[in-house]
């Protein structure tokens, strides 16, 4: 048992869970790309991202993805958010409108646009996290590797060992919980010898970390040796012919989902093109100065 629940597969039986993982990966990529469509004006950007956000919320509800774990994962992002804020505020950007001064820190003028820029980036990051969470919490890690292997199949022509890569990946995934347990056990064993992983100066902390990493490494090595013995003993030959127990299948619901996502993607694209042509609205100016210029 551990506390790292972010993005872990949660075994519900929703439509999203039942989708073909290959299809899910493709759909998620389309959604991710559409998030990063850059439009010229803030108003359009807000409408677009808002629209996407609502759709993602809808998918999360449909897939029973927990909002609580989303908030938890966001709380881990505080440092990143702060970092982005600082960067956007203190690095002068010629694109900022010189009229949009919010306040001064000493002689330095802080621009409204900086906040909006940073906020926009963060908002899109949150959506990225939402998308990945939807994918990982509705798809078994193993199914993801099968899907990746499928996508790598064309590489076989250039003798890329996609099946070996997939096997390596799946074993890595299989052993993550085991190694997390092991980490906890070693941490406790070292705490019993007076190690404090949370306090103390840099040198102490480095030493504490070494006392964790080396044993973990030693045990992982011995595990991998036993594992490779077990695999070989059961007749595994990476270059031999192997049949497959798991097969992926594309159902009608996958088609529906795919069409839906493509439709969203298409709508976004249209929006983007239209925006470039017709809607040059300076939304930001409007929101802060309450005098729309259109």
């Amino acid at each position: 048992m551990n506390n790292l629940t972010f993005g872990r597969y949660v075994p519900f039986n929703t439509v999203v869970h039942r989708l073909d993982p290959r299809n899910k990966i493709l759909m998620m990529i389309l959604l991710l790309v559409s998030i990063f469509f850059r439009v010229s004006t803030w108003s359009t950007a807000l409408i677009l991202t808002g629209f996407q956000f609502l759709i993602l919320i809808g998918i999360m509800l449909l897939a029973h993805v927990s909002f609580k774990s989303l908030f938890k994962s966001l709380s881990m992002m505080w440092i990143l958010i702060l970092f982005l804020m600082i960067i956007y505020i203190f690095i002068p950007n010629p694109a900022y409108n010189a009229d949009h001064i919010a306040f001064h820190i000493g002689n330095y003028a802080v621009n409204y646009d900086a906040f909006v820029q940073a906020g926009y980036i963060i908002f899109r990051l949150v959506m990225m996290i939402m998308i990945t969470m939807i994918l990982t919490s509705t798809t078994k890690p193993m199914d993801l590797t099968y899907a990746l292997e499928w996508y790598m199949t064309p590489l076989k022509i250039v003798r890329f060992p996609s099946h070996i890569v997939a096997m390596t990946l799946s074993i890595a995934l299989r052993f993550i919980p085991t190694l997390l347990d092991e980490t906890q056990r070693i941490m406790k064993a070292q705490s019993s010898r007076g190690v404090d992983f949370n306090h103390g100066g840099l040198i102490r902390r480095v030493r504490a970390l070494i006392s964790l990493v080396i044993p973990l490494f030693v045990s992982a090595i011995s595990r991998s040796e036993e594992l490779s013995n077990a695999m070989e003993a059961r007749g595994y030959d990476p270059y031999g012919k192997r049949s497959r127990y798991r097969i992926l299948s594309f159902h009608f619901v996958d088609l529906v989902g795919f069409v839906f996502v493509v439709a969203i993607f298409g709508a976004m694209l249209t929006f983007l093109i239209l925006d470039k042509k017709y809607m040059n609205v300076d939304f930001i100016y409007w929101i802060f100065h309450a005098k729309p210029n259109f």
Partner: peptide, 12 residues
């Protein structure tokens, strides 16, 4: 369990 059988190239 299937891993052992996959290695024997057994039909699904």
């Amino acid at each position: 369990i299937a891993f052992s059988l996959e290695n024997m190239n057994m039909p699904r």
